[in-house]
Nucleic acid binder design. Structure first.
Lengths: 128, 128
DNA sequence: GGTTGTGTTGGAGTGTGCTCCAGGTTCTAG
DNA sequence: CTAGAACCTGGAGCACACTCCAACACAACC
């Protein structure tokens, strides 16, 4: 079973243009073509793309995703380095989640006390 | 007590260029100038900038921060809309944190079983 | 009063990550 | 056989968020 670029686009939420762009920059391996020269993606490709999207949505830049993709292409000798990248990225996610949680607390406070905060702003305006 | 642009830059972690840029696009109010025409920031400015940075680090685009800044400039009549923006942003943060948590689980699994996953890749390579 | 440091402006340039063509080929349905 | 849809390539263009620079003004110190 294989997928056209439109099918992969729909499944992934990426546009066909973006899929071709990811291929061009080396994030996605060039898939085999059918008799008409059209890309035919395999199930593995779809899964790899889903993984890339997870990396992206958790803040990994394409540059680093590319590094990971390159290592994966080389093969099992790069397993340690790839694992390191994932471990490092996990750390990043932890940090960013902690930041977010801290700001959530600020936001909760601000939202709960919005009336009072605005009243405070008004007295500043009167000072001026 | 007031701060030079260099002092605000150091406290905020932004560059002087970025502070001027934020002023130009309307995220920061133009601060008063000293006799030599240099910007003199007040404590309130420093706090506002810190708040902007929190919004930024939790994923709010400058465009939306600008909308919030504009409303704040108008005054207390915009309080409801501003609160809405914060409530909406809080929702966004919740969503993104949920995404991150889900991916953390994937990452934990992948990292724990990296050896087995790579062995699996190798058998794929032998298939080809 | 000269040198060094810090700031000013306006505008150009950069990196990231797409997004959108134009102009062409191939596939599908009628 | 033909119309329309889907896909192809190469390359230009764009939105976002800075970042850097030239050319100048003022300040602070010795």
């Amino acid at each position: 079973m294989s997928y056209s670029i439109a099918e992969v686009a729909e499944r992934s939420g990426l546009s066909a243009d973006t899929l071709r762009y990811y291929e061009k920059i080396g994030l996605i391996d060039a898939p085999p073509r059918d008799s008409g020269g059209r890309r035919t993606y395999a199930q593995d490709d779809v899964e790899w793309i889903a993984f890339l999207l997870r990396l992206r949505s958790t803040g990994m830049p394409l540059r680093l995703m590319k590094e990971y993709a390159d290592l994966r292409r080389i093969g099992s000798v790069t397993a340690d380095r790839r694992k390191d990248i994932l471990v490092e990225h996990r750390e990043e996610i932890h940090l960013r989640m902690a930041e977010m949680q801290a700001f959530l607390d600020v936001l909760d406070y601000k939202i709960r006390h919005y009336a009072a905060i605005v009243a405070d702003e008004m007295s500043e305006e009167q000072d001026a």
